[in-house]
Simulated scan of single mutants.
Amino acid sequence: MKLKKVFAITLSACLSASMVAGCSTGSSSSASGGAKVIKIGAFEPTTGENGGGGLQELLGMRYANKTHPTVKIGGEEYKVELVEVDNKSDKTEAVNAAQKLVSEKVSVVLGSYGSGVSIAAGQIFADAKIPAIGASCTNPQVTQGNDFYFRVCFLDPFQGTVMANYANDHGAKTAAVITQLGDDYSSGLGSFFKTAFSGLGGNIVSEEQFQTNQTDFKAILTNIKAQNPDIIFAPSSITTAPLIIKQARELGITATIAAGDTWENSTIIENAGTSAEGVVLSTFFDEAEPANEEAASFISGFKAYLKENKQDEIIPAVSALGYDSYLCAIKAIETAGSADGSAIRDALKGVSIDGVTGSISFDENGDAKKDMAFIKTIENGKFKFLTTTTVK
């Protein structure tokens, strides 16, 4: 989006000094016609390896902005302007995208899909005193030591344990783990699954890693086949997932293939075809099980919105989380009664909402207090709800 003329003089200085000076403090302004405006940043990948998932998350934020286009600050109504940047699924580009949001003087940031880019940008937001609310970035490091980062999803230690419990409950005694080298989400979730599964008495018979942009997995899958595991846990991107799934089945591997929340994406089914049948995953939301009235309203309205935008009408969990992150942002802005980032950060600590994915409030680390995950499988070319799971 174009920078407003009123900021033209100061922005050139802020671009280079915003991390150390006060230029990045969130502010409000008047749009043409006199309407007051507050900016919320959408920090998401819309290109690169995670572009598909990032767009789904962004669609939830855009829809939230459509249904909640204004916020009241001190009794006055402000228009919420969603400022979108593409972090390109890349840690270096994430820094550039974060700096752009700082220069745009956003008051709060939403995102990102992908823990690695969220971690990379975290210190920039903290230095600029702009609170960020992650939607689906599940790695614990996103919020650790960062008083300005919050999130509305559950964490990978929980998700890894949930999937280990599921594997154990369904008779799996041996497991293979496949993770992406250098990817915080993949390596973190794989590690948490391994620890939890071993703790339940399971045996990890193979641990394999692959490089970013790798497309041939037959060598590591051949190693896994020789170990004949009951389950393969392979948390990875939606780009990599169908390749792993198809090549595993082509090699005659019959083990259950499982992963985390990133695999709840229809493109995996489209690209893996019948090989995707029986895949199991954990996720944050199921449209067949609305948590409350807000969820029921979201489901019907968002389906219509997806249709208008020529998108698949199956609601991804990350879209619901994107919507909830926006709700938390406007609730915090209203509670703070200010566009100032530090004031909004302080307000977020006490925010409590009934969101689409359930009740949301934050603990001392800025993490959502959540204790339930949805387990789904792929059956007849569709995601099918199996059960909800909690970890005590």
Rank of each mutant, 00 (worst) to 15 (best):
A128T: 08
G60N: 05
L110F: 12
T70E: 13
I130Q: 08
C153M: 06
S115D: 10
N146A: 12
M61D: 05
P157R: 05
P157I: 07
P157A: 12
A120T: 11
T138W: 01
S112R: 00
I130F: 09
L110K: 01
K66I: 10
K91S: 15
R151M: 10
S103A: 15
K100C: 01
A121D: 06
T67W: 00
Q123K: 15
G111K: 11
K72Q: 14
V108K: 02
G145I: 12
D156N: 10
G122A: 09
T143W: 07
S107A: 15
F125A: 02
N139Q: 14
K129L: 10
G75W: 12
Q144L: 14
I130P: 08
T143P: 02
S112Y: 04
G111Q: 04
Q99L: 14
C137G: 12
A94S: 15
F148D: 04
P157E: 06
Q144P: 00
T67L: 07
S136Y: 00
D127Q: 10
G145K: 12
K66M: 13
E76V: 12
Y149P: 00
S136R: 04
E84W: 04
L155N: 12
A94K: 07
F150Y: 15
V95I: 15
H68T: 12
S115G: 11
N65F: 00
V109H: 03
D127A: 13
A126G: 01
R62G: 10
A97Q: 02
T70S: 09
L155M: 14
K100V: 13
L155H: 05
F148G: 03
K129E: 15
V95K: 14
A64F: 08
E93Y: 03
F125D: 08
V109A: 05
K79W: 00
D90I: 04
A97V: 10
F154E: 02
V152T: 11
D147N: 13
F148A: 11
V108R: 00
V152P: 03
C153H: 03
E84F: 01
K66P: 01
V142G: 04
L110T: 11
P157W: 11
S115N: 09
A98L: 01
S112M: 02
V152C: 06
G60L: 08
N87L: 01
L82C: 08
L110R: 11
V152M: 10
K129F: 04
M61A: 14
F154R: 03
I119V: 15
R62V: 02
I124S: 13
T138K: 01
G75N: 11
K129C: 01
A98E: 06
C153Q: 05
F150W: 11
Q144T: 14
N87P: 02
A128K: 03
Q99Y: 00
L110G: 05
Y78P: 00
A97C: 10
E81D: 15
N96G: 03
N146H: 06
Q123F: 00
F148K: 04
K105P: 00
L82A: 09
K79N: 14
I133T: 13
E81W: 04
T138V: 10
K72P: 00
Q123L: 11
F154K: 01
